[in-house]
Nucleic acid binder design. Structure first.
Ligand SMILES: [Mn+2]
Ligand SMILES: [Mn+2]
Ligand SMILES: [Zn+2]
Ligand SMILES: [Zn+2]
Lengths: 141, 141
DNA sequence: GGATGTAATGAGAAGCTTTTGCATTTGTAA
DNA sequence: TTACAAATGCAAAAGCTTCTCATTACATCC
């Protein structure tokens, strides 16, 4: 059994109540890609006494510890998701906001090749495809 | 000769002084990828009496008219560049901030295929590769 | 060229998201 | 349990961006 306490300790973080609650929320909603405000709202619903500043602080710490990934989708705010499973990229519906994940080995390879050719030591990359999902295409006539 | 006045009219925008000045700056610095603040600073240097609010308004209008592209690199602020020439993606040095452009037909194709397979009508995409440029690798030991 | 109506602008206030300062609380390791 | 550093809540502050509104500039028509 992998407790949140254990997970936090392994990440080199003290196992505090706010950190455990936030980690749980991210874990339960693993299909979502949430803003700090989203996480905060769930905490409020659960009657947790955790401040928004702490949510921001904890999410940033989680990011630095490699527990979560931060995205910058269109719109500006930071979006967080639990860093679990394989690396993947994202396709977003600009109408309903749905987020779909995908992996394409060929694209990954090409990216490495491009970086290598230019002499860059690659640290990260982000690929977002924006479009209208099948569902929203129907509704939109 | 393609005047800025003409360019603006073709885009359906009144040819005002602020719009012409901003378009000129983007055109002169076509290698750069500038924030609104960057553009504003150049205006100040040139002793133009143009407010920051106008810079934001104009850049947004240019974006809607298809004259500029807006990016969301790591860090949050909007980054603008003149929408000229072919579509391209970006590779950024996380140390010095250098921006390099590239095009990869294979990646473009794969993206279309991914969207098609999922039934999405693709509207846009953004691919950013982050890394350390050759120059910064040398300096960094 | 000059008048007219509308769209655009500058300045500052306001809005959002995110970060920071600080007094207080909590977790950890003796 | 105790002790101390680390973490937290709250409020204030700090970006970045948008909005409001009185004033100005542009385009059109004379
Ligand atoms: Mn994801
Ligand atoms: Mn570019
Ligand atoms: Zn949709
Ligand atoms: Zn560099």
């Amino acid at each position: 059994m992998v407790s949140t306490t254990q997970e936090l300790k392994e990440a080199g973080l003290k196992a505090t109540v706010p950190r455990m609650k936030i980690l749980e929320i991210l874990d339960q909603r693993r299909d979502d890609h949430m803003t700090a405000e989203d996480v905060y709202k769930v905490l409020l619903e659960n009657n947790e006494d955790i401040g928004l500043a702490t949510v921001y602080r904890v999410l940033t710490q989680f990011e630095q510890a490699g527990l979560v990934h931060r995205h910058h989708f269109e719109g500006g705010q930071s979006i967080f998701e639990l860093a679990q499973g394989e690396h993947h990229d994202h396709m977003l519906c600009t109408v309903c906001g749905k987020v779909e994940e995908f992996v394409d080995e060929e694209i990954e390879k090409r990216q490495l090749a491009i970086a290598k050719k230019a002499g860059y030591r690659i640290t990260d990359h982000s690929l977002y495809i924006y479009g209208v999902c099948p569902n929203c295409q129907k509704k939109g006539k």
